[in-house]
Amino acid sequence: MSPKQLLILFIVLSYTGVVLIYRRKKISLLGGMEYLLVGLLFSLVSVDQALLKPLLYAFIGWIGLLTGMQMKVEYVSRLDRSFYGRVFVYTLVFFCLVFAFLSIVVAPVTALYMAIGLLPVSYLVVARYCKENRYVLFFASIMPFVAVAYLFFVTVFQSDGYTLSFFFLIIACFAIIARFIITNIDDKRSIELILIGLIILISESCAVLNCSALLVTFAVGMYLANFCPLDDVVFIALYKDEKPLYSIFLLLVGMLAGMQASFTFFLQGMAVVVFVAGLKYVLFKIPFFNMPPHYHRYMQAPGGFAVTIGVDSWLNQGVGLQTGWFSLFLFIVLMLQFISVFISRSYE
């Protein structure tokens, strides 16, 4: 099968699948991660990966920009300090313990990125089961930003001077240029076109300079959200086809990453799953975090953003995840997602 045909098939699958997965009364067993599983099945098909892998940068760029656009200082500053204090302590404890455990199984650098990747919580699952509790909803929705912050610090400490200087230069250049272009377009209906162009340009530039496309586009998105007069128009254009685009992304990720079929791989994955699930169970019992103890079951699913962080680290070869460990990471995400939805559904 040629990459072109495969891509078309993915688009058809994602747009038709959205109806089956998201528009039902009951949330699907993998909470939208079925596409990752289908993508993994596609990894059995022989295809020229070099042609499809660069596409992942564009998807990462889109997700980064979309996430960054939600980071409006005006809104974020409305949450009180105690909330941030709890988030900070929770993420720090979770991150350190997961990192320490993973370091036994994998190399420290890999453990670092995997621990960050496991920080986010699937908003889809949380919103489905905890829609009456605003505190939990805020808690879940802030997690991607916290994960990006951790990723930023890790990237800064990991990168050499050359990469770091380009990293900041590219953020500054593209943030200014993007705002400049968006505010000066004559026809507001063409915003999608200009966003497609900018996202591809920014993310592929990151690929060439070996920078994190997620961080760069997140920073650009944050700048646009706070300083661009057309921020709402941009956000709507980015958000419009969120689910199908996420689905294509997951299909591509699954297909390009593949999965190892070995007993050691399975054991390593299950050990991490049990540890992460147990840790969340324990953390939610602590009254300091101010959450109903049984909510741990809804917060187990890491969601699509976890995969995004994993992919971003995987694409930055040399400093990020290697392919084998990335497959393991995907396996862990899938298992946690399944456990979370399965337990949540059985308590419904």
């Binding site: 660069p54 272009i181 162009g197 900018l198 591809i200 690929a207």
Partner: peptide, 12 residues
């Protein structure tokens, strides 16, 4: 350098 970089530049 992927051709998508050129594509992004060309579109913009």
């Amino acid at each position: 350098i992927s051709p998508y970089l050129t594509l992004g530049f060309l579109i913009t």
